[in-house]
Design a protein around this nucleic acid. Structure first.
Length: 283
DNA sequence: ATGGGGGCCTGCCGGC
DNA sequence: TGCCGGCAGGCCCCCA
């Protein structure tokens, strides 16, 4: 679920609830997610004011007064639910706690933010704001795909000489940060590039098209998530699940949507992950 | 350095 | 109905 567009959508949903408000109390229901929580996490968060929310790759960074930043990763199954809250956005009462509610934040003004993650591949850490980029989880990330430093010349250099399939290269977070299995499949479809093609063997023109495809597919998904969030909010306040329509992901056996193409979407396994593509129009 | 595979967890779905 | 295998959108780590 949570690739860059979903994380950005969650960030945008949380920002008006958290920014400028204090964290009154934090309940930590287990010692760890993927890794142990930092020492005294609840005590260090209580009373802090959230200055703002940033996103880096698939990480949400909540900058707090006092010079620390809360880092949150949703892993594969992480969700954030909001209940209560100011301004009447969440008029219902707080729902009963559920299985896998691992961390619960009570926010000034009455909102409650709950982190739920059945598989516990998510993560939470607290770090010095000034050294955030040096955090081990962030230090080796490549450029943001929607940022100015991700462009054809960069991607050409990053993929040069790589014998790995382009699918695997785009999932490598040190090459470009924030893409996951779904949006790599979708971007390659839009760029008409086979996921099996060697990363270092893509022409300049097609790499340029790939950069555009990556940026557009992410921007489209964020726009869709944003409008979903604005117009519709589940009664339990869950952020981050939206209706997506994918062109190839999950469409094995279905007809290719490219005009004039009579191909069928195939599924192959690369590096242990499913790749969906049309072998007729992706080369 | 690069690339491939295993492992972490739980939930769900399809087949028998 | 119950059990079992396979699958899942992430990411670190180890090994060749």
């Amino acid at each position: 679920m949570p690739e860059l567009p979903e994380v950005e959508t969650v960030r945008r949903g949380l920002e008006p609830i958290l920014a400028g408000r204090r964290i009154l109390r934090v309940q930590v229901n287990r010692p760890d997610l993927r890794w142990p929580f930092p020492p005294r996490l609840a005590e260090r968060l209580a009373g802090r004011r959230v200055k703002g929310l940033r996103r880096r790759s698939k990480y949400i960074l909540a900058d707090l007064d006092g010079g620390e930043t809360l880092l949150v990763h949703l892993g594969m199954s992480g969700r954030i639910l909001v209940s209560g809250g100011p301004l009447g956005q969440f008029v219902h009462d707080h729902p009963a706690p559920e299985r896998h509610d691992h961390v619960v934040f009570d926010i000034e003004g009455g909102a409650r933010v709950t982190f739920n993650d059945p598989r516990r591949f998510g993560a939470m850490d607290l770090l010095a704001t000034a050294a955030a980029e040096a955090h081990p989880l962030l230090a080796r990330l490549g450029p943001e795909p929607l940022g100015n430093s991700f462009h054809e010349a960069y991607l050409t250099a990053a993929l040069k000489g790589r014998g790995t399939p382009v699918k695997a290269a785009l999932l490598d977070q040190s090459i470009v940060a924030g893409l996951g299995n779904i949006y790599v499949c979708e971007a390659l479809y839009r760029a008409r590039i086979s996921p099996r093609r060697r990363a270092g063997a893509i022409s300049a023109a097609r790499l340029a098209a790939l950069v555009v495809a990556i940026r557009n597919v992410l921007a489209d998904a964020i726009a869709a998530g944003g409008s979903s969030l604005r117009d519709y909010r589940r009664a339990d306040g869950e952020l981050g699940y939206f209706q997506h329509s994918f062109d190839v992901y999950g469409r094995e056996g279905a007809p290719c949507r490219t005009a004039g193409c009579d191909g069928t979407v195939r599924r192959v396994v690369q590096a242990g992950r499913s790749s969906f593509y049309c072998a007729s129009c992706q080369r």
